[in-house]
């Protein structure tokens, strides 16, 4: 429900059991981009501050530390890492009680000269989310891009 709230979707199928029971799917489901929040459970996710470790966001200084590493599916690491593409294939709907176990593997990498961000380094990662029985639920393909410089505006 927190996730649906954050994307501004008031659809009751994402949180109201009684309402969802009367819909075609018959139970509460997760919004289409929900598996992105698996970052919450990744102990090494680089875009979350961790106790006792340096963090690159502002404190006394504009940037407190060196940039953190990239996180799987999170669209690249700090400063110049941006999320370029995200693709999902749904094999079935995610429902409450599911325990989804992600397995990520790196995909292709390629480069191209950008118009606004200098040389662009793209890298792909494919994540399979399987449930407690090993059944494939969602396949996600994420493309991150590392830009040479800050993306020009306009």
């Amino acid at each position: 429900m927190m996730f649906a709230r954050a994307v501004g979707d008031p659809n009751r199928v994402y949180y109201d059991d009684e309402y969802a029971a009367k819909t075609e799917v018959g139970h509460v489901i997760a919004p289409p981009t929900f598996v992105q929040s698996s970052a919450q459970f990744d102990p090494n996710y680089g875009l979350r501050p961790k106790p006792g470790q340096p963090w690159f966001g502002s404190g006394k200084e504009a940037s407190g530390a060196a940039r953190g590493g990239g996180g799987g599916g999170g669209g690249g690491g700090g400063g110049t890492g941006l999320h370029a593409e995200q693709h999902y294939e749904y094999h079935r709907q995610v429902r409450p009680g599911d325990v989804l176990i992600p397995t990520s593997k790196p995909g292709k990498t390629w480069e191209r000269e950008g118009r606004r961000g200098g040389k662009l380094h793209f890298s792909e990662s494919v994540t399979e989310y399987r449930d407690q029985d090993g059944e494939l639920v969602v396949t996600a393909r994420s493309v991150g891009v590392r830009t040479e410089k800050t993306v020009e505006q306009g």
């Binding site: 994307v7 659809n11 199928v13 981009t33 693709h87 999902y88």
Partner: peptide, 28 residues
């Protein structure tokens, strides 16, 4: 980017109905 994808997803599920999507992919 994923917030934009999420918000765009609301339009999609409003259009096609809940639990009907089989694929959804975007470029930012």
């Amino acid at each position: 980017g994923m917030l934009t994808m999420g918000m765009t997803g609301t339009m999609l599920t409003n259009y096609v109905g809940d639990g009907r999507l089989t694929k959804y992919g975007v470029r930012f």
